[in-house]
Design a protein around this nucleic acid. Sequence first.
DNA 1: GCCTGGCACTCTGTGCGTGCGAGTGCCAGC
DNA 2: GCTGGCACTCGCACGCACAGAGTGCCAGGC
Lengths: 340, 340
Amino acid sequence: MAHDERRLEVLRAIVQDYVSTNDPVGSKALAERHDLGVSPATIRNDMAVLEEQGYITQPHTSAGRVPTDKGYRLFVDRLSAVKPLSVAERRAIERFLDGAVDLHDVLGRTVRLLAQLTRQVAVVQYPTLSRSAVRHLEVVHVAASRLLLVLITDTGRVEQRVVESPVEVDPDAVPELRTLLNSAFSGVKLADAGDKVPDLLETAPSHLRGLVATVSSTLMETLVEPSEDRLVIGGTANLARGSALDFPGTMRPLLEALEEQVVVLRLMGEVDPTTVLVRIGEENAHEALSSASFVSVGYGSSERALGGLGIVGPTRMDYPGNMAAVRAVARYVGHLLAES
Amino acid sequence: MAHDERRLEVLRAIVQDYVSTNDPVGSKALAERHDLGVSPATIRNDMAVLEEQGYITQPHTSAGRVPTDKGYRLFVDRLSAVKPLSVAERRAIERFLDGAVDLHDVLGRTVRLLAQLTRQVAVVQYPTLSRSAVRHLEVVHVAASRLLLVLITDTGRVEQRVVESPVEVDPDAVPELRTLLNSAFSGVKLADAGDKVPDLLETAPSHLRGLVATVSSTLMETLVEPSEDRLVIGGTANLARGSALDFPGTMRPLLEALEEQVVVLRLMGEVDPTTVLVRIGEENAHEALSSASFVSVGYGSSERALGGLGIVGPTRMDYPGNMAAVRAVARYVGHLLAES
DNA sequence: GCCTGGCACTCTGTGCGTGCGAGTGCCAGC
DNA sequence: GCTGGCACTCGCACGCACAGAGTGCCAGGC
């Protein structure tokens, strides 16, 4: 039906105008700026219907219309074309990320890059431990009954734990222990590491068995837990741009939620590298994020998601542009980490 | 002179009242809330002198007085007594920091604790590499001509670098290389590590010499540079509390400066563990921090500063309380890291 | 049947004048 | 050298009217 189509066209125009101007948009301005082929009066009728259907709303009687969460949702799902990145942007991504010296550096650059490209708050998750594999395990003798266990994953992540042994540890046994652990765990995914422990205990020489048990249990307890997921956050200064307009109360709860990394990590839980996930306003099911949108995607290869990254901003954001940026950065980071 | 003393007393009262109420304070309110023993009219005379001397100022003609940077400076230097922490606060510090599993965890907890105690933005610097000593060096064979070098310091910091070798590396040479490096560098401060390189090269067996040279130069180049200093930041949500009142423009430049870690690191450069450093407003010599104060102190033992930590907030802050909190936390962190 | 122009209506934001209150500076007196 | 009194200066909140934007509705035209 031509009717419905034009109505959607009106919605698209409203979203686009509102995102770029930050003013509630009225029928007259809409008719002027877009080639809808009808008069303001007709647009008004369409708007009335859109409002009744819950896609737009007016802040007060004599103001223009503003998209609702539902309106943005429809826009994202059906009305927005994927906006390809400009050549300059693509080049910026490469220039920014090449030359990183280690994982920490890669993720730090990524978060800055993403914040800069989208002008929003960027969040990047460290490669999930449980999805990573062991590249190397290092054991260092720190004190009589204290060892330092260092785990290096295939994604370049390094984690360390102090292991308290109930008995004194012979320093000379450490190299042997190291070899043993590495031959057992090297290349094994951390999620599967638990399965290797019984075998390892059985084959370990008797004088090392106690030690191996202690070390393995530390490894399992602390390193495999999902609580070990980490997050890098950047670009919070971008929140202070249109603040009063974009975030009704203050932006304080939002900043708190971001620092409370758990909140973001939970959202990240569902990412996958093939599709960009968009959560709009109330869809986030978290008070502090109820007037914010979250655009995220997984990074890594399609077979293996390593982690997620994304941006947080006002619901009034450039979805096509941000989705494109998030996806492009994730792809590049994925390649970068696959190489190393 | 009794005169001057009372005048200082008036300044102290002004600072205290202004910090707690956030309203410019007038002569009448001052006479009511403080036992100065004189009438408002007399206080007015004192205030006029204080204003002429540049310690206070009035936002507009018919408002009360507000301390200037210079006024706060005098207050901090001469008028404020060290405020001992409450028992509850001391206990909170212990409860918060005990049970940390590694350095990352310790610093993460520290920054949250500090932000919570002071209700300001907290910054904590990682132990400076150059002041740390090598606990262990680990070499992992990653690919034919690529090694991963992992440095573990005595403060528990772990850093990693990829080393590209111009020639292929024999995997069997790696354990030998590891032993060699550790015997040369173990216990050596990173600042002094450079001196050990010539010796090391001389004593190294000829078939390893090239490799040792490559690895050592990577170590020197990247790990000893001060650019490798890291920072943890937390409590930015506290900025959004009295924002409009505390930070004239917006808080955006401040957030940007904080993310630009270099700015804060430069301020941290001067810390030492024995004295709490306070920089007030314009003293910070950085645009974005010109309406903020920075309270910092070094942590570590008195012989050896490991790094710095501190808080950033509006010049209108509780200096005695914040100085006490910063110092107490630094002491505790210092002990914690000295132990491990 | 749908679109259009016209019109009355509603509402917000703004500019202006006013009164109030807080706070000051100054002066004369103790 | 302190104090009470007094005139003065502003900023701020309030009330009010007005202009402008935007809407909904209706009658007429294609």
